[in-house]
């Protein structure tokens, strides 16, 4: 986002604090992003729809307390969405489902390695099932949402170095166990 876009968005947020109708523009802008983020953590359209609505209701409720801290507004929404998903899993005591797009997995692998097959994908999924959940969350935000580490740290309530460490550890294992590389910065 450019400085001008951030300033415009901040103006809209300030307007929304006084008039809930103005928040509709932010809702339209971020709905798909938040919906997909929740869907990736639930694998259920209906549930994702409900949790997404609740996310925006909570955002509206807490908007008067929102302050710009150098992160895009979407990071704040991601944080609320993550809390809603956690609340759901705590309440229902179920296994956390990460429903990731096959196409994206293939895209990520194809970036550096040409010799992938179904077997490799299956082994990769099995490997990710054994990773700590927190590590999967970091990987999801990094590779499926294209967030930088600073933003990931804010969304998941951890330090930036913690987010980096989790990513590098997971990717190191990928390199040694599967001989594949995935693009990352930091």
């Amino acid at each position: 986002m450019t400085d001008e876009e951030i300033r415009k968005e901040q103006d809209l947020i300030e307007k929304s604090k006084k008039d809930s109708n103005a928040f509709g523009e932010l809702y339209e802008k971020y709905f798909d992003q938040i919906f997909n983020y929740i869907l990736r953590q639930t694998g259920d359209d209906e549930l994702a729809g409900d949790l997404c609505s609740q996310t925006f209701v909570n955002a509206l409720k807490n908007l008067p307390r929102y302050e710009f801290r150098g992160f895009p507004f979407s990071a704040w929404l991601y944080k609320i969405a993550g809390n809603e998903v956690n609340k759901h899993y705590r309440k229902h005591k179920g296994k956390i489902i990460f429903s990731i797009e096959e196409l994206r997995v293939r895209e990520l692998i194809e970036q550096t390695s040409d010799d992938w097959d179904e077997e490799l994908i299956n082994r990769l999924i099995q490997y990710m099932n054994e990773l700590p959940t927190e590590m999967v969350r970091v990987l999801e935000l990094r590779f499926f949402e294209d967030k930088d580490f600073k933003e990931i740290a804010f969304i998941l309530d951890m330090t930036e170095s913690g987010a980096k460490m989790r990513t590098y550890r997971a990717l190191d294992k990928l390199r040694t166990n599967f001989n594949i590389k995935m693009k990352y910065d930091g």
Partner: peptide
């Protein structure tokens, strides 16, 4: 672990989430 990874064939496009908007 405490989670399960599932592969989803299609990427949800904006049209897919439209009915929840």
């Amino acid at each position: 672990g405490k989670h399960e990874i599932r592969l989803r064939r299609q990427r949800i496009a904006s049209r897919g989430s439209e009915r929840f908007r």
